[in-house]
Design a binder for these strands. Structure first.
Length: 253
DNA sequence: ATGGTTGTACGACAA
């Protein structure tokens, strides 16, 4: 079972890239973030024409998540239960017997800002939700844009980013707390000593200079065995790319 | 150089 996470930064702009990706890689599940598309304008027909099922939770201009899958998604749930949030950032569903949680964690803008406080409050609520979900789902996978680089190896130039957004101790603690719940960082486990960067800023030619950061993750419970995984960084080098590359894992079935 | 680019939507904000 091949599972992919990709922050597309506008599905309207990136639909051709996504359809090409489905053809080339034929993933069983493709989780999207930052679709920036309200539900009434979601390109459902185009995706179904590519022989994929799709569920989505979106809004105008910002955020938005979607799950594309070869087999139908069931028990679909949008958002974090009992957490009021106007921003569409979470979509959970069961696909092939695996509980899949697609997440777009807030960026936080700058350490100490109002948006950073929103990020921390959001992480607290999401962590509680995750802990509860793990009680009832043995096969569970959390994937998406976490906007957290867990360790120095995940950053092209750690000194330049120290203490900054995505790298602050408090954010990292939330990430490690998720691992302590019984989730494995599948890409890091498969590739212990490579950068595996997944995001490159649009500015300053960051991709060409390989100024990347690993902020897109796929976490798996012990009942799921990752056989292989990686980053499709060639997508970042295409015409009019997203600033994120897809990250993927192949699970033992 | 505390720099710049992209998306949304047409000015400013988010990333």
């Amino acid at each position: 079972m091949k599972i992919v996470s990709w922050n597309v930064n506008s599905l309207n702009v990136r639909l051709p890239h996504v359809l090409d990706y489905l053809k080339t890689h034929a993933p069983d599940v493709l989780a999207l973030q930052e679709t920036k598309t309200p539900d009434e304008k979601f390109p459902q027909a185009e995706i179904e024409a590519a022989a994929y099922h799709v569920v989505f939770s979106g809004q105008k201009t910002y955020n938005g998540v979607a799950l594309l899958s070869k087999t139908e998604a069931v028990d679909v749930q949008a958002g974090i239960p009992e957490f009021e949030d106007a921003q569409r950032r979470v979509l959970a569903a069961t696909i092939n017997g695996v509980r899949i949680i697609d997440v777009y964690i807030p960026n936080g803008q700058e350490v100490g800002s109002e948006k950073y406080e929103y990020k921390l409050g959001w992480l607290k609520a999401f962590s509680g939700y995750l802990k509860a979900e793990l009680v009832t789902h043995e096969k569970l996978l959390v994937l998406g844009d976490f906007n957290i680089a867990p360790a120095d190896i995940d950053i092209h130039d750690p000194s330049r980013w120290q203490g900054k957004i995505m790298c602050s101790d408090t954010e990292r603690q939330y990430f490690f707390a998720m691992l302590a719940m019984g989730l494995a960082d599948s890409l890091r486990s498969l590739h212990p000593s490579e950068g595996m960067h997944s995001w490159w800023d649009y500015r300053l030619n960051a991709f060409q200079r390989n100024w990347g950061i690993r902020i897109d993750h796929i976490l798996t419970t012990a009942a799921l065995i990752p056989l292989a995984g990686g980053v499709h960084r060639e997508e970042r080098g295409r015409e009019r790319p997203s600033d994120h590359a897809p990250v993927w894992v192949e699970l033992q079935t």
